[in-house]
């Protein structure tokens, strides 16, 4: 065997090479010079033991730059006096902003608004989702096609859904207002009152996410073995009792998961609200996520918004752990 020709790439490569692999490089170095060092470099990069890592590296780097680094950076900033719009360097502030956020009545008000929207929207999603699942459990003509159609809202982007509903709700030419005017003679300005605007958001969100609940519940419904229904029928159980004692136990776990998942997601609701009402009228539909956005990018209170974000993150983490706990428990049950 020839000794490997020494150059930077192959020398450094050889440090980690098995004898068999270094033979490979040795053969390659016999080829005419020129792109030699370049080719060695590529070969080093994409050698089998490194290939996987190299292929995911760009994604990981992007993820780190765009997500993880800003996440940690903003965590740091929440302990400093800092405005992103100002040139002044950050000054240490300790827990000043956390205290400020937690004692701020506006934050509690926004949390209340968020809770109202979450409660209404998730409830609506659960009820509609469950009802649709019961419907789709049965066989009927065009079931598949209808199912696909029903699932589309879930796959649309938030912005698209927001824009749809903003146009639906538009007082002069929106379909809702027009329909209202047809029956009652005057246009409907749904977004002008607090509860009108809240319902507008709830309907848009529930429209988008009821299919998700339906999918989960449907999975539970189809997992009920037929023979249990037959046994219950022979045992003379009424429809309601059959539902309660046979169907529901199979759906309960999934329903809880849907509830938690949708609560977490709706708690963070931003896009749809921002597009449909932008928090209005006044601040009556300003959810906590919209508030964070305003604090961060309209008032440029960077430290305060970071602190608030971390408090919200904490809430979400608690809910998520609850969710994971129930996921695991369900896995054990089955």
């Amino acid at each position: 065997m020839n000794k490997p020709v020494t150059n930077v790439a192959s020398a450094s490569a050889d440090l980690s090479r098995t004898p068999a692999a270094s033979n490979n490089v040795t053969d390659n170095t016999i080829t005419p010079a020129g792109g030699k060092s370049m080719r060695d470099f590529w070969q080093w990069m994409f050698s089998p033991e490194r290939r996987g890592a190299m292929l995911v590296a760009p994604a990981l780097i992007m993820l780190f730059l765009m997500n993880i680094f800003p996440l940690m950076w903003s965590f740091g900033l929440s302990f400093f006096h800092y405005k992103a719009s100002s040139i002044r360097p950050p000054r240490f502030a300790g827990f000043y902003y956390y205290e400020k956020v937690l004692t701020d009545p506006v934050v509690w008000e926004r949390l209340q608004t968020t809770a109202q929207i979450v409660a209404l929207s998730v409830l609506l999603q659960m009820v509609i989702g469950f009802a649709m699942a019961l419907m789709f459990e049965k066989k009927f003509p065009f079931r598949r096609e209808l199912l696909m159609l029903v699932l589309t809202p879930m796959m649309l982007s938030f912005v698209a859904v927001g824009v749809f509903f903003k146009l639906f709700y538009e007082p002069t030419f929106g379909i809702l207002s027009q329909g209202y005017a047809y029956f009652f003679g005057e246009p409907l300005t749904l977004l002008a009152t607090k509860w009108g605007a809240i319902w507008a958001i709830v309907i848009a969100d529930a429209w988008m996410w009821s299919p998700f609940v339906m999918l989960l519940v449907l999975a539970g419904l189809v997992s009920v073995p037929d023979y249990l229904y037959e046994a219950a029928a022979v045992d003379r159980a009424s429809w309601w009792r059959r539902f309660k004692t046979v169907t529901f136990p199979y759906v309960r776990g999934l329903l809880l998961l849907a509830l938690l998942f949708r609560t977490i997601e709706t708690f963070k609701i931003f896009d749809v609200v921002y597009i449909i009402t932008a928090g209005g009228p006044g601040t009556s539909t300003e959810t906590i996520a919209v508030y964070v956005y305003k604090v961060a990018f309209q008032f440029f209170k960077t430290s305060q918004s970071s602190a608030l974000s971390y408090i919200l993150l904490f809430v979400v983490i608690v809910l998520t752990n609850l969710y994971l706990y129930f996921v695991n428990r369900r896995n054990e049950e089955i």
Partner: peptide
């Protein structure tokens, strides 16, 4: 009438 299923069909 009552029936005993081959699979038992217990809840």
């Amino acid at each position: 009438m009552a029936m005993v299923f081959q699979t038992f069909a217990l809840y």
